[in-house]
Amino acid sequence: MGIDIDVARCTGCKLCQIVCAIANFGENNPKKAGIRIVSRLFTEARYDIVVCDQCGECIDACPSDAISMASGVVTIDPELCTNCGVCIGACPNGALFTHAEVDHPIKCILCGECERLCPRGILGPLAASDQREVAD
């Protein structure tokens, strides 16, 4: 269970992307975010929100055992990750992102920063705490 999203109300402002990059990398750089807003304007008059739903399919795919789940959150251990990219291909949502300056894929870790400032309040609430305990 990842971020609960009401995609139809996304306005494509991408504030979530820059908030994410600042929270996780301390940089004004939306290309280092674990979330992507993709325009479908020309055909469907809407945006897609691409973000990890913490399904965990990447865990088994990782040849270096660098990916694990705790409290319902899937994380990548940068120490173990070889940046081979297998998990990116395995992700059913296309929600693992790369950046030339970062030596591992970037993904949502449910830190909650984006939902705090989403102007439409459409990112959130985060997965309920009982579900996190179940995942433990």
């Binding site: 109300r9 306005t11 402002c13 991408k14 504030l15 820059i18 008059a45 809407r46 102007p119």
Partner: peptide, 10 residues
């Protein structure tokens, strides 16, 4: 049919 924003605009 929908709303649209510029970068980081509420």
């Amino acid at each position: 049919v929908g709303d649209k924003a510029c970068f980081a605009c509420p």
